[in-house]
């Protein structure tokens, strides 16, 4: 087959339950922009899953992905070793983040969403914006890339559910403070769990601040041919793979998305149980045959 092999150049654990992979994908790296994603099929028999491009290196021809092993496919990918290869990496897909110039941008990353917010913050900084970054996670163990984000932000706020680092609570708390302070904010961009993005949308709505969220829906092809990723935006059906993945948070029907996110929960459970390469909640590096 004329498929490129996507060798895993490096693999590291960057937080509890969180793996960073740098993968050879020169075609994707050449074109990747902040906000875009790839569709990955790790192996034969595998499913196609969307993963956000957390960073890219055009010269080395690599992309970086940050993954939590939440199910069978992510578990499998996280258990691959350095110099193993992913079978298919297609992209870059979706629309790049809409640029803002010379304003103030608040970038919010929750949990695994901290990774995709990084290239966006970096680009916003490069466009001459004042960048305020807010990151949140369950606890300090789950935080990562604070330094990387610090280097491209004017301010970094941290929130943890248990208060083990930064303020105790959710990312919406520092956001609320910022909005109330009356400082000019041109754009809020939030990536994280659906419920977090919904709460961010509800926080900014009364202040009329344009808010963008990146939707992580169920996808199959990622090129607009099936509609599994469809979402209601301002009452209209959109395909998040081609029309998004970023949408105006104030127009998104989050309740519908929350329901659609549960479509395969039964099957996902069955698939997870069939997956054995886990130890103490962490994937093992598969022994190469």
């Amino acid at each position: 087959m004329d498929t490129q092999l996507h060798r895993i150049v490096s693999k590291s654990r960057i937080a509890s339950f969180t793996t960073q992979l740098v993968v050879e994908a020169p075609d994707v790296a050449r074109k990747a922009r902040a906000g875009q994603f790839v569709i990955v099929r790790a192996a034969e028999h595998g499913e196609r899953i969307p993963l956000t491009i957390a960073d890219y290196d055009r010269e080395r021809g690599t992309i970086t992905m940050v993954i939590q092993p939440v199910g069978r496919s992510t578990g499998l990918i996280c258990s691959m070793c350095e110099s193993d290869s992913l079978l298919d990496v297609a992209g870059p897909l979706g629309n790049p983040t809409e640029p803002v110039e010379g304003g103030t941008v608040v970038c919010i990353g929750g949990g695994i969403g901290i990774a995709p917010i990084y290239p966006i913050a970096r680009e916003m900084k490069a466009l001459g914006n004042r960048v305020i970054t807010i990151i949140g996670a369950r606890s300090a163990d789950y935080l990562f890339w604070e330094d990387k984000l610090g280097a491209v932000s004017d301010e970094v706020h941290i929130a943890t559910d248990d208060g083990s680092k930064g303020i105790k609570g959710f990312v919406t708390m520092p956001l609320q403070d910022l909005l109330k302070s009356g400082a000019r904010i041109d754009r809020v961009i939030a990536i994280g769990p659906l419920i977090m993005m919904k709460n961010v949308a509800n926080t900014t709505r009364p202040f009329g601040v344009k808010t963008i969220v990146s939707l992580n829906t169920v996808m199959v092809d990622g090129t607009g041919m099936c509609g599994s990723c469809r979402v209601s935006v301002a009452g209209q059906t959109k395909f998040s793979c081609v029309d998004g993945p970023e949408f105006d948070a104030h127009d998104v029907n989050f309740d519908e998305l929350l329901a659609r996110g549960r479509i395969y929960s039964l099957e996902e459970g069955a698939a997870r149980e069939a997956y054995e390469h886990m130890k103490d909640g962490e994937p093992l590096c598969l022994a190469r045959k």
């Binding site: 595998g46 499913e47 069978r72 496919s73 199959v220 099936c226 479509i263 099957e267 698939a271």
Partner: peptide, 25 residues
């Protein structure tokens, strides 16, 4: 959509789930 249903079954072999990883209702 028929495209999604058929893609899951034909291309991704969801009819062989969980031998193949793609699910279908």
């Amino acid at each position: 959509s028929a495209n999604e249903y058929l893609t899951r079954v034909n291309l991704m072999k969801a009819y062989k789930f969980p031998e193949y990883d793609t699910p279908i209702k």
